[in-house]
Simulated scan of single mutants.
Amino acid sequence: MQATVAEVSLKYSSQMSYDEMPTITSPEEAAKFLRGIFDPDTIELREEFYIVLLSNTKQVLGYSKVSIGTMTGTLVQPLTVFQTAILGNANSILVSHNHPSGNLKASNSDISLSKRLRDAGKLLGIELVDHIILTKESYTSMKELGLF
């Protein structure tokens, strides 16, 4: 008797042409894009973690909320981040989370996660271009600070 198992299939279908997709080539552009996807009514309430999928020309292919946490933290698995990146056909990724406290300083766990994502991405050929910490009023680029 043959066992029945789930079929796994991959599909990627964009609703926009490449010419219409926004491009992110700087932390400023990243923060502007991220402000459009983070909910301004909850940015001071709880931490959330997003991944932005980028093409080889840094055009935005899509984004996904990876994790919703508490006032002081959120759990992120590299597996989930790269599963999303692979399914979305990303060449590189930008990740971001918010600090409800308004503090822009990266925590030790923020730095550790960024390094893990950078290293996992290297193995998969998917570059981590930046990790943006967003607050209600500002942002910081962990890449510009040399934290990973």
Results as ranks from 00 to 15, higher is better:
17 S>R: 10
45 L>F: 13
1 M>D: 06
139 Y>R: 03
146 G>V: 03
74 T>H: 00
110 D>Q: 04
91 N>H: 07
30 A>W: 00
121 G>L: 13
42 T>C: 03
142 M>K: 08
82 F>A: 06
59 Q>Y: 06
76 V>Q: 02
31 A>G: 00
62 G>S: 03
17 S>T: 10
66 V>G: 07
139 Y>G: 00
62 G>K: 07
23 T>Q: 12
103 N>C: 01
5 V>H: 13
105 K>Y: 15
142 M>W: 04
132 I>F: 07
48 E>G: 01
39 D>A: 06
70 T>E: 12
130 D>T: 01
144 E>P: 04
26 S>N: 09
143 K>A: 15
136 K>C: 07
45 L>R: 15
47 E>W: 13
91 N>S: 05
142 M>H: 04
66 V>A: 01
79 L>D: 12
9 S>I: 05
136 K>N: 08
42 T>D: 13
101 S>H: 13
90 A>D: 03
10 L>F: 11
63 Y>F: 12
145 L>M: 13
53 L>T: 10
132 I>S: 01
99 H>P: 03
127 E>R: 13
134 L>F: 01
13 S>K: 10
146 G>R: 09
10 L>K: 11
53 L>I: 08
104 L>E: 08
123 L>T: 07
65 K>F: 02
140 T>R: 10
77 Q>G: 06
137 E>S: 14
56 N>M: 02
45 L>V: 15
23 T>G: 08
103 N>Y: 06
28 E>P: 02
27 P>K: 03
65 K>R: 05
81 V>R: 09
79 L>H: 15
117 L>M: 14
73 G>W: 07
